[in-house]
């Protein structure tokens, strides 16, 4: 049994809103976002750092929120999938591409991919196919066979993409 640690006050900017909270020391950032902030777009597919469903931006870096404690985000800025599109509900470029290319089926892995790719294309705006595959290799999707996902990243990067299904 994990000995209980004292509760800790934290200040985190989540999707632009400053939040003051007091959290258990062992609370993960993922659970903080899902339970305390009620931002349930961040999903948990493994809770051991492999599937990438829980990916969020922490001061701009894509991180696995299941492997980080909420207290480690004290003073930081966090962006979740809910903060990727416009406040009016408009989808961002990556999200649009995912929809156009049928990059999602059940949608459970999707927030992690959208956040990962948003950071990736910011850093590597014109990636090769190999770079794209490497960038996606920390996220697991069980539904799509990655076909629509690969196409979506190319589209979001501004590459010419033929119709779904065509290589």
């Amino acid at each position: 049994m994990v000995p209980s640690l004292p509760d800790v006050p934290i200040r985190v900017t989540v999707n632009g809103t400053v939040r003051h909270s007091t959290v258990e020391g062992r609370l993960t950032l993922a659970d903080y976002l899902r339970e305390d902030c009620r931002l349930t777009g961040t999903h948990l597919g493994c809770e051991h750092g492999v599937c990438g469903a829980c990916t969020v931006l922490l001061d701009g870096d894509a991180v696995r929120s299941c492997l980080i404690f909420a207290v480690q985000a004290d003073g930081a800025e966090v962006t979740t999938v809910e903060g990727i599109g416009g406040p009016d509900g408009a989808l961002g470029v990556v999200q649009e591409a995912w929809r156009d290319c049928h990059g999602l089926q059940c949608g459970f892995c999707t927030p992690g991919f959208v956040v990962t790719v948003t950071a990736f294309l910011r850093d590597v705006p014109d990636p090769t196919d190999g770079q794209i595959r490497d960038a996606l290799s920390g996220n697991i999707c069980r539904c799509t066979g990655y076909q629509g996902i690969l196409k979506a990243v190319h589209q979001a990067a501004g590459h010419a993409v033929s119709g779904p299904g065509q290589p």
């Binding site: 349930t40 999903h43 979740t80 999938v81 809910e82 989808l91 995912w98 929809r99 999707t110 959208v114």
Partner: peptide, 17 residues
Amino acid sequence: NRVEDARLLSGRGTYVD
């Protein structure tokens, strides 16, 4: 394009958890 996608892409799906 799918009608499911807007909610799922923006983190507004409703899964059991």
